[in-house]
């Protein structure tokens, strides 16, 4: 059984600084990595493979640097990788990326499960998974916090914030996971060193019949939230100050929710 895990190349968010004057993120020189929730999807794929057999195939679309970035997915346990590489795929909108990923998966073999993170670490639009399911006409289960597979059936628990929902579906199926589903493993040194020697298949968008149209999405703002202090001072004595503090917190919507 093929377990496809879609991963996205993003900047390492832990190493992004915010320029204080403009609140813009400083991305120059920040190493590229695969997204955090993608690692949860990958971990789940590796666990399923260890239980059910088959192969875990990492799938990703992006720029030339992906050749290097994908090693992280291979080090974490993917058996092989499929990449769609073109400069214009870096930062491409979800519809284009979903089409590229779906076509690459469709081209390369029999589908068991397609796993994704619920949203990417950088934009978190959460669109790629559902779009892949639509393109390939497959059932999809989103917000998955627990996943089991037996025979040809998957059973998933969906975390819907105010309740949990347990659902079943027949394979092939698209499953997008939330971060609490597992704790991704730290790759061992030997796995990291073997990653570069695992099989990799590279496609261009043209080979998959994917056309990359101009972007229909315009980013209006990408700034860090302001974190100014309120600088409220209460100096009327403890009795009054506590009341004033409570009133101030309530007025900010921080109490009594």
């Amino acid at each position: 059984m093929n377990i496809y895990v879609c991963v996205k190349q993003t900047v390492d968010l832990q190493q992004v600084r915010i320029r204080k004057e403009t609140r813009e993120p400083v991305l120059d020189g920040v190493p590229l990595t695969i997204g955090n929730i993608d690692k949860n999807a990958l971990e789940e794929g590796v666990r399923l493979r260890d239980k059910l057999g088959g192969k875990v195939i990492g799938v990703s679309a992006g720029s030339e640097e992906l050749n290097d970035t994908i090693k992280e997915a291979l080090a974490m346990g993917a058996d092989e990788a499929i990449m769609i590489i073109a400069p214009e795929l870096e930062g491409a909108e979800s519809s284009t990326v979903a089409m590229a990923l779906a076509k690459a998966i469709e081209k390369t073999g029999e589908i068991g499960i397609i796993l994704l993170g619920e949203g990417s670490s950088d934009n978190y639009s959460g669109q790629v998974g559902p779009r892949i399911a639509e393109i390939l006409d497959l059932p999809q289960i989103t917000y998955v916090s627990s996943l089991e597979a037996e025979g040809n059936t998957v059973k998933a628990v969906r975390n819907l914030e105010d309740c949990f929902e347990t659902v079943e579906a027949e394979m092939p199926v698209v499953v997008s996971v939330v971060s609490e589903i597992n704790e991704p493993r730290i790759p061992a040194v030997t796995q990291i060193l073997k990653a570069g020697r695992k099989p990799k298949q590279i496609y261009s968008p043209a080979e998959l019949g994917v056309e990359i149209a101009g972007s229909q999405i315009k980013t209006i703002s990408n700034l860090a939230p302001e974190q100014d202090r309120k600088r409220l001072l209460f100096q009327e004595g403890v009795g009054q100050d506590v009341k004033s503090l409570v009133a101030a917190l309530e007025s900010e919507g921080l109490l009594g929710r």
């Binding site: 970035t69 090693k71 990291i192």
Partner: peptide, 18 residues
């Protein structure tokens, strides 16, 4: 190299977690 970067990252994650 990417491998060195990943080994460094694995060490950092291990050290921070454990």
């Amino acid at each position: 190299t990417k491998e060195q970067e990943l080994i460094q990252k694995a060490a950092r994650e291990f050290a921070e977690k454990s």
